[in-house]
Write a protein that binds this DNA or RNA. Structure first.
Length: 109
DNA sequence: CTCTTGACTGAGG
DNA sequence: GCCTCAGCCAAGA
C-alpha cells in the first residue's frame, strides 16, 4: 500500500490493533504516538469508521479510563462487556485499576 | 474558501 | 478531586 493510503484515520486503526489483549489506551496516547498530540479528538472521530474493521475500539478510552465512546457501540453495555471479557474490571463505564491495564504506545513501542 | 462537529485534553477555580 | 472553559485539528457540508 502507498504511504498516502496511510491517512491519519488508517494510522489510528493500526495503532489500535496493536493494543495488547487485556490492556487499554487513550485517544491522546495514540494521537501522540502518531505525532499529532493535539488531535486526540480526531482519534475518536476516526474510530467512527472502525466499524467493519478489525479495530478493537473498545480498548480505546479517554484519559480517565472512562468509556466515553460506548454510545457508538451497538448495545448500551457492549463495550464494557468486551473489556470485562478481557479481564478488565469496569464499573459504571469507568475502568478500575486503570494504571494496571493502561498501555501507552509511545512508551511500550 | 468558511463554518460546524466531535469516541479529547489541560489548565484554572 | 470535581466542574467549567477554551484550544486543539481533521473531515464533511
Amino acid at each position: 500500500m502507498k504511504l498516502e493510503t496511510l491517512n491519519f484515520f488508517d494510522k489510528v486503526y493500526e495503532v489500535a490493533k496493536l493494543v495488547p489483549y487485556g490492556r487499554v489506551t487513550s485517544y491522546g496516547a495514540i494521537a501522540k504516538y502518531l505525532g499529532a498530540a493535539r488531535s486526540a479528538r480526531m482519534v475518536g472521530y476516526a474510530m467512527n469508521g472502525s466499524g467493519g474493521k478489525d479495530v478493537p475500539a473498545h480498548r480505546v478510552v479517554n484519559r480517565k479510563g472512562l468509556l466515553t465512546g460506548k454510545h457508538h457501540f451497538e448495545g448500551t453495555n457492549l463495550m464494557q462487556q468486551l473489556l470485562e471479557n478481557e479481564g478488565i474490571e469496569v464499573i459504571d463505564n469507568q475502568i478500575q485499576n486503570l494504571k494496571l491495564v493502561y498501555w501507552d504506545p509511545s512508551v511500550e513501542l
